[in-house]
Amino acid sequence: MSDKWIVETDKLRKVFDGVEVIKDCSMHIKQGTIYGFLGMNGAGKTTVFKMLSSLLSPTSGTAKVLGIDITSHSSEVLRNIGSIIEVPIFYEHLSAAENLQVHLGYMNKKNIDIDKTLETVGLPSRDMKPVSTFSLGMRQRLGIARTIIHQPKLLILDEPLNGLDPMGILEMRDLFLNLVRNEGMTILISSHILNDIEHIADSIGIIANGKIIDEVGMAKIKSKTLNSSLEEYFFEKIKEKLEYD
């Protein structure tokens, strides 16, 4: 793996039924950082996430995750990432702990402390209620628990804070920062709530109409040169793109 990039794509494309949904998409994510992936609805964020997670095959271009080509070594990629993409799906008749146990079996991981992981995301470890009784916020917490329990190197999180109350959002932001600083993980995260990204991201990428139009460090956005909030910067870049097109 490159010392610099844990995720690297070059001219990535995805075509569905003759329509180019992702076009000339180049992304660069440093190891041990949080990368905020921003875009309007339908911009292509989830499609990119699915390609990086080997759930979709690119039409053309290249993508490496952990230095591994996602098209030729997808099983190796999957062992080393945790992901929430769209709505997390669970075995509804099983408890939170039982769902995590099934996931660990699938990942061929043993001797993992399930109770500790549940407590980390704010779920009671001894609660045997089926997931079918969980609130949206509890399901989202369980989804996050499932992404981290097998100790992956990269997290790919598509709107992971949906359904959480303000305290839950704060707790998860702190968790993500801890995972990067103390557990050595890297996080690729999307959110429509730009304030959440602004608080935790080291850098951001903005996608519009299937193409990444900007990658920039948060430090630069907040610098004296730009002196912008993330919201101001994001809408300025989207406006420039619309005017250019």
Rank of each mutant, 00 (worst) to 15 (best):
N99L: 07
G82P: 09
G61H: 08
I68P: 06
A97V: 11
K45P: 02
V77M: 12
V48L: 15
G39I: 04
L55I: 13
V77S: 06
N41W: 04
M40K: 13
G82N: 11
N41H: 07
F37A: 00
T62C: 14
E86Y: 04
Q31K: 15
E98Y: 03
T47F: 03
T33G: 05
A97C: 08
L52N: 01
H93A: 13
L78N: 13
S83M: 14
T47G: 04
S26N: 09
Q101W: 03
T59Y: 05
I81Q: 02
Y35K: 07
K23C: 11
A43Q: 03
S83G: 09
H93C: 06
S53H: 04
L66G: 10
T71S: 14
K30I: 03
I70Y: 04
L56A: 08
M40A: 13
S75Y: 07
V65D: 03
L100P: 04
H28K: 15
P88F: 08
H73Y: 12
A96T: 04
I29A: 01
L66Q: 08
I85C: 10
P58V: 11
N80L: 14
G44H: 02
R79K: 15
I84C: 04
L78R: 15
S54W: 05
V77Q: 05
V87C: 06
K50H: 03
I81P: 01
G42W: 09
T33R: 12
G39L: 09
V77F: 08
N41G: 03
A97W: 03
F90A: 09
Y91G: 03
S53A: 15
